[in-house]
Computed example of a mutant assay.
Amino acid sequence: MPIEVGIWKVNDEIKKVSFSSIESEKKLEDILVKDISIISEDLLLIGRQIQTDYGKYIDMLAMDEDGNLSIIELKKNRTPRDVVAQALDYASWVQNLSYDQILKIYEEKNNVPLEKAFADKFENALPEKLNDSHQIMIVSSQLDGETERLINYLSINFDVPINAVFFRYFKEGDHQFITRSWLIDPNIVEEKSSNTKVVSKKEKWNNQDFVVNFEENQNRNWQDAIEYGFVSAGNGRWYSKTLEQLFVGARVFCMIPKSGYVAIGTVVETAKPIKDVMFTIEGEEKNIAELQMVAPNMLHDLDDLEKCEHVVKVEWIKYVPKEQAYWEKGLKANQNSAYKLRSQYTIDKVSKFFGIEQDNNRDNSK
């Protein structure tokens, strides 16, 4: 049943602070837009009054750190049946929003890229999948019995990820307060939201670009990689196997972890155990043992195909020393040695840093 919330001022005397539902309804949406953390600190507001394809407008749309969406609908003066039915209709539209559509909505509403705002909010790069699931929140200044029955019916009997959050607005002199209560534990609703998963909405890959993490240590040195044209990984199959994705002609965006992006290049020879790799030096074929390397231990575990260094030869297009690496919030980062670069935001930013023209005609077939 609805929870009654009250506030008492306790100084020299005990005095109950008055509650105003009318003033609350007028101010509630503006308050939430100004600071969505009043609902949850784990939400980033995408925008308010989001137009659907059916000509209706969602009061607010938000995103959590996993890229999942929340439809936030204010009850205002509508009947319980109207507001719940409307929210369900919005959810049927939201569940089909693509990665690119979400980026576009955010930028149109906020005039900044979602990648940057997401990184500022969550201290992490925007996930490759967005809108894997969603949930619905009905917001009101007080919860009536009919709304409560409808939400409990949908949640308990049909696992619909719907909840009600209700706020009380209080005023005492020049001071204003709001309180928040949930009908259902938000953790329970979040668990139910996994049932709304549909086909994953990933940012599409252009069938060309990869990120390679070049981890500097005794086994590899960035100066060697620049001079001889390669990237490498080793010390276990987990580290080296992702290099096998790199095909001849693929473009690599090379990154030194904890430093940033240091180069863009093109793969000219696929991954091989280090002992099988040959370099042409002044017209003469040489293996790495014959080269002057800065890394003192690149030939570690030479006869162990699981642990030895695996090398991909690369022709560098542009590169910088480690000390000049490029990094800013929102750029793509991942712990794998090599992975598909789906983030157009990262591609554009890093390419601009290196002064490389971008072809915007992307192959989005995967």
Rank of each mutant, 00 (worst) to 15 (best):
residue 3 I to Q: 14
residue 3 I to A: 12
residue 3 I to F: 12
residue 6 G to S: 15
residue 8 W to C: 06
residue 9 K to H: 10
residue 16 K to R: 09
residue 18 S to F: 11
residue 21 S to C: 11
residue 22 I to M: 11
residue 22 I to H: 13
residue 24 S to M: 10
residue 24 S to E: 11
residue 25 E to S: 09
residue 29 E to A: 13
residue 30 D to S: 15
residue 36 I to S: 14
residue 38 I to M: 12
residue 40 S to H: 06
residue 47 G to S: 11
residue 48 R to F: 05
residue 49 Q to G: 10
residue 49 Q to K: 13
residue 56 K to G: 13
residue 58 I to E: 11
residue 63 M to G: 09
residue 65 E to R: 14
residue 70 S to W: 07
residue 70 S to L: 09
residue 77 N to G: 10
residue 82 D to Y: 09
residue 84 V to A: 09
residue 88 L to M: 15
residue 89 D to T: 15
residue 91 A to Q: 05
residue 97 L to N: 04
residue 98 S to Q: 06
residue 99 Y to C: 03
residue 101 Q to R: 15
residue 102 I to A: 02
residue 108 E to F: 05
residue 116 K to M: 09
residue 117 A to H: 07
residue 117 A to S: 15
residue 119 A to K: 05
residue 121 K to H: 06
residue 125 A to S: 13
residue 127 P to D: 05
residue 130 L to R: 05
residue 131 N to T: 04
residue 131 N to E: 04
residue 133 S to W: 09
residue 134 H to V: 08
residue 138 I to G: 06
residue 141 S to W: 07
residue 151 I to N: 02
residue 151 I to R: 01
residue 153 Y to S: 11
residue 156 I to C: 03
residue 157 N to M: 12
residue 165 V to A: 14
residue 167 F to C: 05
residue 167 F to Q: 03
residue 169 Y to K: 09
residue 170 F to T: 05
residue 172 E to S: 12
residue 173 G to T: 01
residue 180 R to K: 15
residue 185 D to A: 08
residue 186 P to L: 00
residue 187 N to V: 09
residue 188 I to G: 03
residue 189 V to A: 04
residue 190 E to T: 10
residue 190 E to G: 10
residue 191 E to V: 08
residue 191 E to S: 11
residue 192 K to G: 07
residue 194 S to H: 12
residue 196 T to I: 00
residue 196 T to A: 02
residue 198 V to F: 12
residue 202 K to M: 14
residue 203 E to F: 13
residue 203 E to S: 15
residue 203 E to M: 13
residue 204 K to G: 05
residue 206 N to H: 01
residue 207 N to H: 06
residue 207 N to D: 07
residue 207 N to W: 03
residue 208 Q to L: 14
residue 209 D to Q: 02
residue 211 V to S: 02
residue 218 Q to V: 13
residue 219 N to W: 08
residue 222 W to F: 12
residue 225 A to L: 08
residue 226 I to S: 08
residue 229 G to W: 00
residue 229 G to V: 01
residue 234 G to L: 00
residue 235 N to C: 12
residue 240 S to G: 08
residue 240 S to W: 14
residue 245 Q to S: 10
residue 247 F to Y: 08
residue 247 F to K: 14
residue 255 M to K: 15
residue 256 I to K: 03
residue 259 S to A: 12
residue 260 G to W: 00
residue 264 I to L: 01
residue 265 G to V: 00
residue 268 V to G: 04
residue 273 P to I: 04
residue 277 V to C: 05
residue 279 F to P: 02
residue 285 E to R: 13
residue 285 E to I: 06
residue 286 K to S: 06
residue 289 A to N: 09
residue 293 M to W: 02
residue 300 H to C: 11
residue 309 E to N: 14
residue 313 K to F: 00
residue 314 V to R: 03
residue 317 I to W: 02
residue 318 K to C: 07
residue 324 Q to P: 00
residue 326 Y to P: 03
residue 326 Y to Q: 02
residue 327 W to H: 11
residue 328 E to L: 10
residue 333 A to S: 14
residue 333 A to Y: 10
residue 334 N to A: 07
residue 335 Q to L: 12
residue 339 Y to N: 07
residue 341 L to V: 01
residue 342 R to L: 04
residue 343 S to A: 09
residue 346 T to I: 01
residue 346 T to F: 00
residue 347 I to K: 08
residue 350 V to H: 04
residue 354 F to Y: 03
residue 355 G to R: 00
residue 356 I to R: 01
residue 358 Q to V: 15
residue 358 Q to I: 15
residue 362 R to K: 12
residue 363 D to M: 05
residue 366 K to H: 10
